[in-house]
């Protein structure tokens, strides 16, 4: 509870005493690059395989002759958009980007780089953290879209080369009963998750005390707490937006 209060204070401190807008734009672009480069390969690879595996497994479980093969496409599509792309990617993202944010800020803290910024009269939390959060808010939804596309493409590859379902059936399934709201829902989720991962990891890194050992611990804690927050908010968002 005390940490939650400190976390909220930390978030509000990001908006005080800011440097010039131009500085922020530059820093944010740098962060976007970093976030993208850090996570794109792993996210892409995981999505491709998850899409492929979901296709194979769904097809394997469809033994009832009354259910058409095209259902595989539908299941993979909904699974991907609703859960796999935004949530699984968030977990990977927490592991890659969250730990690197916490490690980076933690190192800056223990080597007094953050103090050096403060002495220069710079609001260090805003200067260092705001670009990371904004950069993540821009990049993470894009990653989720990429993950979704790649997962569905992975499913297509599995259909084509795995031989469990024809590609025509797969495509038909993809188009069946499509509800556009699922895409909006995925994007809402990705914004929330992106914010949670970047702000929680920044918080953990920014308040590191001690030495190299504590920086490692801060990174691990950033990933753990981010994952818990993701799963918890995933549940709440589903409850709020999907259950009527």
């Amino acid at each position: 509870m005390k940490s939650l209060g400190k976390y909220l204070l930390f978030i509000s401190s990001l908006f005080k005493n800011r440097e010039s807008f131009k500085t922020y734009v530059k820093l944010t672009l740098d962060e976007c690059m970093l976030v993208g480069i850090n996570s794109i390969v792993l996210v892409g690879l995981v999505s491709l395989f998850i899409g492929a595996v979901s296709t194979l497994q769904t097809a394997y479980n469809l033994v009832n002759p009354l259910i058409p093969d095209s259902v595989v496409g539908l299941v993979v599509r909904d699974l991907t958009i609703l859960e796999l792309a935004p949530t699984i990617t968030a977990i990977i993202f927490a592991g890659k980007v969250g730990s690197s944010i916490a490690g980076n800020l933690g190192t800056m803290r223990i080597t007094e780089q953050i103090d050096a910024l403060e002495v220069m009269g710079i609001n260090s939390s805003s200067y260092l953290v705001l670009p990371k959060i904004v950069g993540t808010l821009i990049m993470y939804p894009l990653l989720v879209i990429l993950a979704g596309v790649l997962a569905i493409f992975g499913g297509f590859l599995a259909a084509k080369f795995g031989g469990v379902v024809s590609t025509a059936d797969y495509f038909m399934g993809l188009k069946m009963d499509f509800n556009q709201f699922t895409v909006s829902f995925a994007l809402i989720k990705s914004v929330v998750f992106g914010f949670l991962v970047s702000s929680i990891s920044s918080y953990m890194g920014f308040f590191t005390r001690g030495g190299a050992l504590e920086v490692g611990q801060a990174s691990t804690r950033a990933v753990t707490v981010s994952c818990i927050a993701i799963l918890f908010s995933d549940f709440i968002l589903a409850q709020l937006l999907l259950v009527r």
């Binding site: 800056m108 080597t111 007094e112 780089q113 103090d115 050096a116």
Partner: peptide, 13 residues
């Protein structure tokens, strides 16, 4: 108006 040299240098790495 303050310049400070930190114990470990504190250069931005």
């Amino acid at each position: 108006e303050i310049g400070m040299l930190f114990q470990g240098g504190a250069l931005f790495d």
